[in-house]
Design a protein around this nucleic acid. Structure first.
Lengths: 246, 246
DNA sequence: GTCAATAAGTTGTCTTTACATATTTACGTC
DNA sequence: GACGTAAATATGTAAAGACAACTTATTGAC
């Protein structure tokens, strides 16, 4: 309802684009609470003039925030701040990232790191010939002292050099990013099943206990398969949180 | 690698924006295979001239497809068609939509449709006062003759009028859309647990059988809560497929 | 008082022009 | 032949202006 006389100082000598400076500052003010939900922005022309920008540039800043779900525009009406929600869409992150963000201290135990011929299913998922060796990785993830997940990963050899040390101290995705692999898209399938005897033993559950399963194939920016993972999580300790936009 | 001399006919009298006409036609040609993965587009200036458009308009068309993951741009280099993948990000859809798309014939049995006081947890999820009546909906979803999922939904009264008939023949989300509710964003949590005796009986599983659980809160374009759902799926019959971009 | 036409205000689309910056290629120098 | 520099080529950012389309409020007629 309210209307705010926005003021932003711009740095025209900065390498950061003007539209992005505006978008960032706007976002900051929204997150700060300076522009609570429902706040009506002044119209584009006035805003552009006030900031000494052209309307297209001002529009682009607003557009960026509309795409990210912080603002809503209606033709003929105006632009409003959206009710504060978790606004980010699903992200490409790993369990490790999730736990770090939650303030937990994850610990990883590398059970197996080998280079060998993949099974047919894995070879198909990685889109390599059946005779091509790949990394085979098996890890156990802890949150605190409790085992949380049993992770199986398969990777082509030519993307990143894996070592047990590095994997113990860092997440797989971080290692890949550090090696210059740009993760772009991943297709996942989330299901559930009962734990096998072996899984139950490793994870500290009883046989048949419900496990969450996630199979993931990850691609880089040119569409190459960079990783295939088949993971199981103790359902009693873990859930997947998603935010979808549509 | 290859380069294609794109040709598109535009309708300037159409209400469909020019940039969108271009984007649609480009997408069609990509999907058709006329522009296979790796195809290099001509540069923006040439394309704009060839189609009789300004460069910003041409850029906007390309930008649209880049955002959707069909094209990749690199400054100083050019624009390329991406390797064909499932390119769409996660969408706001319901199980019903999923099944229809898969060619299945879903059937819905309405077990309960009532208006009553919500539990504290539901009231909190819907962000209504504890004394406010809400729709309480319990449905059983079949795929063919097999029960697939047990769905619990809670909705504010003022958004849509629900009837047992309509729910039997159509998905809840379709009904809401038809009532003018624009679903914008949803946060979901996917987990797993063993079936209770009651759930097992209804779903045709045995007690303790692994079930996928999904709790979802859906919001409209101005951030109002429009639905809260707590669903369980037979893990032996269902999995969630997601495509993430990052 | 009610309804329809009109006006004002706002975002949506499009053009033209200019310059900045990243990347690759070609060339010249050593 | 190796290296650095410059040129060519492509996308990235920005400005200013014009008209279109949608909403809402106002005004006028009845």
């Amino acid at each position: 309802m309210t209307e705010t006389p926005l003021s932003i100082t711009l740095d025209r000598s900065s390498p950061v684009p003007l539209y992005f400076q505006v978008a960032q500052e706007l976002e900051r003010q929204i997150q700060d609470g300076a522009m609570p939900a429902g706040t009506r922005l002044e119209n584009e022309v006035v805003l552009a003039n006030r900031l000494g920008l052209s309307r297209p540039t001002m529009r682009r800043a607003i557009e960026y925030l509309v795409d990210r779900g912080l603002l809503v525009r209606k033709r003929g009406v105006g632009t409003q701040v959206v009710t504060p929600r978790v606004r980010r869409s699903v992200e490409l992150s790993s369990l490790y990232d999730d736990l770090v963000q939650a303030g937990q201290h994850p610990r990883t135990e590398v059970l197996r790191l080998a280079v060998e011929r993949p099974s047919d299913a894995v070879a198909a998922a990685l889109e390599v010939g059946a005779g091509t060796d790949v990394y085979v990785l098996e890890r156990l993830r802890y949150a605190g002292e409790e085992p949380l997940a049993l992770l199986h990963n398969y990777l082509p050899l030519d993307l990143v050099r894996l070592s047990e040390d590095a994997l113990t101290n860092d997440g797989l995705y971080n290692l890949m990013r550090a090696a210059g692999v740009t993760l772009k898209i991943a297709s996942q399938s989330i299901g559930a099943r009962g734990a096998t005897a072996a899984e139950a033993r490793i994870l500290g559950e009883h046989r048949g206990a419900p496990l969450l399963t996630m199979d993931r194939t990850a691609y880089d920016d040119v569409g190459r398969v960079v990783e295939f993972g088949a993971h199981v999580y103790r359902a009693s300790r873990y859930a997947f949180d998603l935010t979808l936009t549509g």
